[in-house]
Amino acid sequence: MSDSSPKKLTTEQKEEPFLKLVFELGPLMIFFFANLRGEWLMRAFPALSAFGTPLLVATALFMAATVISLVASRIFMGKVPIMPLVSGVVVLVFGALSIWLQDETFIKMKPTIVNGLFAAVLLGGLVFGRSLLGYVFHSAFRLDDEGWRKLTLRWGLFFVFLAIINEVVWRNFSDDVWVNFKVWATMPITIAFTLAQMPLIMRHSVEPIGEEKKDEG
């Protein structure tokens, strides 16, 4: 009985990151290709012309894909992770504003708002002596207090960096460059940053209390 449980957990741990990646990348890929082929989509499906520009057509499809992704996450994973949920809500709000007001600025500022919000929450928590990242990732790994503080600070500053670089790109480059950056650069940068935190995580990892009790028994 005791041997079967760890195997089940290991299988779930292998499947969940893959599903998360699919649910997060899916809407982004639709956004990219819809923007790339926006004019063709508007010719093939004239009703889409009501949205205005190719970028706004891509925004509408992005919103629909985001809703589908969140629902699928709830069905297949049994939960909706907090970060995709917050990001999804902002996508819907700012996407709707962009389409309603025919102003692409709102959807372009969405990454700035989301990353700025995460940075404010994490860094603000540290000001009040709370490492809020631990509440989100405590089920994935266990760190001592110093480890959570350092990891929270790093992620807070990283979100500030993402917010700043999004502002630089959308304000100084074309729509296509911004969409390409959003889809093809942000995710690799985030993955690289995450991997770079592994030494810190390893240094500050602590053994789960349950495992200590088993060893003592």
Rank of each mutant, 00 (worst) to 15 (best):
P6T: 00
K7L: 14
L9K: 14
L9S: 13
E12C: 09
E12V: 01
E12P: 11
Q13M: 05
K14V: 03
K14I: 03
E15A: 07
E16G: 05
P17H: 04
F18L: 15
K20A: 09
K20I: 03
K20L: 08
L21Y: 08
L21E: 03
E24R: 08
L25G: 01
L25E: 05
L28W: 00
L28M: 12
I30C: 06
F31I: 00
F32T: 10
F33H: 01
F33R: 05
N35Y: 12
R37T: 03
G38Y: 03
G38L: 12
E39S: 14
W40Y: 09
L41Y: 12
R43H: 15
P46E: 06
F51S: 03
F51G: 00
F51R: 00
G52T: 04
G52P: 02
A58G: 06
L61M: 11
F62C: 12
F62L: 06
F62W: 05
T66Q: 01
V67D: 10
I68K: 10
S69I: 01
S69C: 02
L70W: 09
I75E: 13
K79S: 09
K79P: 05
G88R: 06
V90I: 15
V91D: 09
W100D: 13
L101F: 15
D103A: 11
E104I: 13
E104D: 14
E104M: 01
F106R: 02
F106H: 12
I107E: 12
I107Y: 02
I107N: 00
I113E: 08
I113D: 04
V114G: 10
N115D: 10
N115A: 04
N115C: 01
G116C: 04
G116T: 04
F118Y: 12
F118L: 12
A119M: 00
A119E: 03
A120P: 05
L122E: 07
G124F: 02
G124E: 06
L126Q: 05
L126P: 11
G129W: 00
R130D: 01
R130M: 05
L132E: 07
L133R: 03
F137P: 04
H138P: 13
A140C: 09
F141E: 08
R142H: 14
L143I: 12
D144C: 12
D144Y: 13
D145M: 08
E146T: 15
G147S: 12
R149V: 02
K150L: 13
K150E: 08
L151P: 00
L151I: 09
L153I: 07
R154D: 10
R154A: 10
R154Y: 14
F159T: 00
F161Y: 13
L162E: 06
I164M: 07
I164T: 04
I164C: 07
I165Q: 07
N166A: 11
V169K: 04
N172W: 13
D176L: 09
V177K: 10
F181L: 04
W184K: 09
A185N: 11
T186M: 02
M187A: 12
P188K: 03
P188N: 08
F193A: 07
L195D: 00
M198G: 03
P199E: 07
L200I: 01
R203W: 08
S205Y: 04
V206K: 04
V206R: 03
I209K: 14
I209T: 14
E211L: 15
E211R: 14
K214A: 15
E216K: 15
E216T: 14
